[in-house]
Design a protein around this nucleic acid. Structure first.
Lengths: 152, 152
DNA sequence: AAGGTTTCGATTGTGCACAATTGAATTGTG
DNA sequence: CACAATTCAATTGTGCACAATCGAAACCTT
């Protein structure tokens, strides 16, 4: 039983915390994306909404929220700003008037071609090989799923 | 040249994005911590400030910000709320009146003993062994450092 | 068909995060 | 010593994130 193996003064050191590593990396990502997204006039959460719609257009607010794990309280103002930017439209669904269907405009769909260059920039900046980044991503996805399961 | 190896329809799929995995895991963490921190009456960013001060008391606002990578615009209101909760005090430094020194109260220091149980809950909830979590953390720390370097 | 329940998006209020600016205190330079 | 440049925290304004609530629409159930 080595004494040094685990300091065990109950380890609350900031740099030991996985939660802070995640929190801090998330902010580093938004800082990294900021200048890239500035060219599109988007914030990072707005970009996430665009990613969802580029993948599947014509979703309801709720469907977008399910994908991003965000509620209407967050999404409604974001979608309104994207609508004002002329990137998407919002209209009540005919079949179910409670739902609002979000659709890309031509401009919104075209923006995708600029964004296609982004992933490579991440790989370059990260100074890691693709396999390591994929491993990191998969670990995070599993972690998120387990945390969500534990809190539910 | 396999067609299936890399879909190469320019991969902007949400679930492929490392940035979203990090963003999403960060939110999952704050959701997970919320009920734990509710017992202390703290939000997650407030908890981070307490972690810093438990490790080194009597820091200036700038020093806390350097540790958490947050500026005074974010920290000042957070520190004011923690002061109102009676967990810390803020006073101008005698040696340099520009700086504000933040010090824990007895109550603030005592709160640490409750927080000491948190890390184990993360390990339990994550359903991963400690080594895997450490690897994830180290990968994120490197990623953050590289992203910061690239944006600077 | 009628009434309660559920679902959906919007709204309100609180608390980060960050850019930009302000004003006071300090430091550097002539 | 004077005074311009810098540093520090606070302030202002914008935009997420989320809890709580609301009102309308859709769905039961009988």
């Amino acid at each position: 039983m080595s004494e040094t193996a685990r300091p065990r003064e109950k380890d609350l050191r900031l740099d030991e915390q996985l939660c802070f590593a995640v929190y801090s990396a998330a902010h580093a990502f938004t800082r990294f994306y900021r200048p890239l997204l500035a060219r599109l006039g988007l914030t990072y959460p707005q970009y996430l909404v665009m990613l969802v719609l580029w993948e599947a257009d014509g979703l309801s607010v709720g469907a977008i929220g399910e994908r991003l794990r965000l509620d209407s309280g967050t999404l409604t103002p974001v979608l309104k700003r994207l609508e004002k930017l002329g990137l998407l439209t919002r209209r009540r669904a005919a079949a179910d008037e409670r739902q609002v269907v979000v659709s890309l405009t031509v401009t919104g769909a075209q923006l995708r071609t600029i964004a296609e260059g982004f992933p490579d920039r991440i790989v370059d900046a990260s100074a890691c090989d693709g396999a390591e980044l994929d491993g990191l991503r998969d670990g995070l996805v599993r972690l998120r799923a387990n945390l969500d399961k534990a809190v539910a």
